[in-house]
């Protein structure tokens, strides 16, 4: 019993540790949101509350920008929804890994399924898969005790806590950060760092390249549909490139 309890905490802490460096990009992101939302006329308490309610950086930034431009509620909700559509894909991607968990765990982990937490958790799951495949395992249920959901929880919790704190920090100090510091640049840098970790094999590289080109090609699509279209293009290219290589060994 004590053995499993301490292993749970070790998994949780490992998740926190692996998620921590990404907070370099998350903190400016959260602060930028606060600055933007305040400027758009949102009351401070609601800015803070929205970070828990929505808990999605890019959608929150879009909401703040559109409020500032006095857009209507429906276009704002649509844009934010479409920006978050990629989370359906993340959900599919982790479904196999969380199926065995009790419902309350699945409900909790779904809430924490953000870009940065997803990326770190999925890297862990896929690395485990690769290690087991290399060991000649057929991909049946993983050996027990399986505590990887505690790792996922550690990633998600770290990000969640940091998102709430950085929202608060933005409310308190945001106005004092000079524009010349370009703290917004830390956001694409975080995505870049994650991306390079995720593309160690050629089909993933093809998927990433296609999605990046797609993001530019489809940039003009209305309602931020371009991002989703680009991701779908990347999926198809990655899939076919893996198929093609399997067909011609």
């Amino acid at each position: 019993m004590t053995q499993t309890t301490s292993s749970k905490w070790l998994e949780f802490l490992a998740g926190c540790r692996d998620e921590a460096p990404l907070q370099l990009g998350v903190v400016p992101f959260g602060m930028l949101y606060s600055i933007g939302a305040l400027a758009a006329g949102m009351p401070a308490w609601l800015v803070q509350l929205s970070s828990a309610l929505v808990f999605a950086g890019s959608a929150q930034l879009a909401i703040a920008q559109m409020l500032a431009a006095s857009a209507g509620a429906l276009p704002i909700a649509l844009t934010a929804g479409l920006l978050n559509l990629r989370h359906v894909l993340y959900s599919a991607s982790v479904a196999d890994y969380v199926r065995h968990l009790p419902r309350r765990w699945r409900l909790l982990l779904a809430y924490l399924l953000t870009d940065e937490a997803y990326a770190v958790a999925i890297l862990r799951y896929q690395r485990d898969d690769a290690a087991r495949a290399a060991a000649g395992d057929d991909g049946g249920p993983p050996p027990r005790p399986n505590l990887r959901h505690w790792y996922f929880f550690g990633c998600g919790f770290t990000l969640w806590a940091c998102w709430q704190l950085s929202t608060a920090a933005g409310l308190l100090f945001g106005a004092r950060i000079p524009l010349e510091w370009d703290i917004d640049f830390a956001v694409p840098l975080t995505f870049l760092a994650l991306l390079t970790l995720l593309i160690r094999e050629s089909a993933s590289q093809a998927a990433a390249l296609a999605a990046a080109i797609g993001a530019l090609l489809f940039a003009g699509l209305p309602h931020n549909l371009g991002l989703v279209a680009a991701i779908l293009l990347g999926l198809v290219v990655g899939f076919t490139s893996a198929k093609g290589r399997r067909a011609t060994p």
């Binding site: 991607s93 993933s204 296609a210």
Partner: peptide, 18 residues
């Protein structure tokens, strides 16, 4: 099989548009 490419494709698209 498609799920394997969700993470790379998403982060590439997010990076390029950012």
């Amino acid at each position: 099989d498609l799920c394997r490419y969700i993470a790379p494709a998403s982060f590439a698209a997010l990076t390029a548009s950012a």
